[in-house]
Every structure is written in structure tokens, then in C-alpha cells.
Amino acid sequence: MEVYLQGILVAIKGTPITIGVSLFSVIIGAAVGLGLALLKKSEKKVLSIIAKIYIEIVRGTPMIVQALIMAYGIPYLLQQNGIMFKWPHLIIPAMIVCGLNSAAYMAEVIRGGIQAVDPGQVEAAQSLGMSKSQVNRLIVLPQAFRIVIPSFGNEFVTLIKETAVLSFVGVVEILRSAQLWNASTFETFPAYIGAAIVYLMLTYPLSKGVAALEKRMAKEDL
């Protein structure tokens, strides 16, 4: 029994990295996702096409491949061209990839949130003489933001699980911690079960929290 407890404790050591990367990725994802959503609904065709291409590429390729390109491919390319470049820490490309990946999904969520804002709100704002950017900044985006907050929470939960692929690029998060322990002790089952339990300990309360938030917001009618 003790060995299982040890497996859990080992996996817990990777938790700060998993949480940290996931949290940063949600923030990057929300910011870039907002940009993409605005580009996509832009009246300038070029801008909306750029956003569409970005989203298609990110969604059409596995995150592990993106992570390998970012962590190893790009430094290699730069070095080949005589630029000495090395990531100071692998956690940086990890956060960038997860964030940019998440942005492609969040863009759709945010776009949906913007569309869910009652058109009457926009009309009222326009009738008071607000410019397009004022209508967006003061009225539409704050309301869309409230609508998509639960989705941000769900994306955070998803990222906690998805960041497991970062173990392949050498970021010592939960799964990588378990793998390393397994490599030195050969306690294969306790190692991976430990990781699974720790993931569940994170995701279960978080999803419950998000569900409760959703319920409360529905009750408040916003």
C-alpha cells in the first residue's frame, strides 16, 4: 500500500508545474483567443483569413507535434542559421505552445460569447452615440466575457490533462515525474496510477466548481 502512496506523492511533486503551465496557458489562450475572435469578425477579409488559417493549422495538428517543433525544432532551425538560441527553460516553449493551442479553441468560444450578447445591447449603445470600439470595449466584451467564464474554467481543466503531453518534451510535470520515478524504481503500476489519481484530484473539484459557477450564473440570468 505504501508504494502506492509514494506513487501519489511523487506525482504531486509535478503538480505546481502542471498547474502553472495550465494557468499561464489559459491566460495566453484567452488573450490571443480574444484577438483571434476579433480578427475573425473583422470586416477586413485579410485579417479574418489570417485568423481562420491559424485556427485550422492549430486544430489540424497534434499538440505534441507543435510542442516538439517549438521546444526543439525552432532552436535547431535558428542554430542552423547561425543564431545561438536555446530555451532558458523548457517550461517556456511548453507554455507558449499550450497557450497558442488553447487560443485556437478559445477564439471559437469567445466568438460564441460575443454572438450570445443581445443585439439590443448593441443598439442601445449605438443609439447613445458610442463608436464601434466603444460598443465593443464597454458593452459587448464585458458581457461576452461573463458568458464565457465557465468555458475558461473548462478549458483550464482540459489543459491540466492535455499538458501531460509535455512530458514528451522533457517538462517535469505530473506525468514526467511519474515516468522518472518508474524508470528508477520499476514500480510501473503505482507510478502511473499515482499520476492518474493526482490528475483526478485536480480535475474533479475544478469541474464541480465550474459547474456550480455555471449554475449560479444561470440563476442570476447572466
Partner: peptide
């Protein structure tokens, strides 16, 4: 020319 709407359209946030 400020407008008052049938459905109020108060800013809900």
C-alpha cells in the same frame, strides 16, 4: 436624439 426601446435594453452588466 436619445432612444427608449420597447425592451429597455439596459446594459445588463
Amino acid at each position: 436624439m436619445a432612444m427608449v426601446f420597447q425592451n429597455f435594453n439596459l446594459f445588463s452588466h
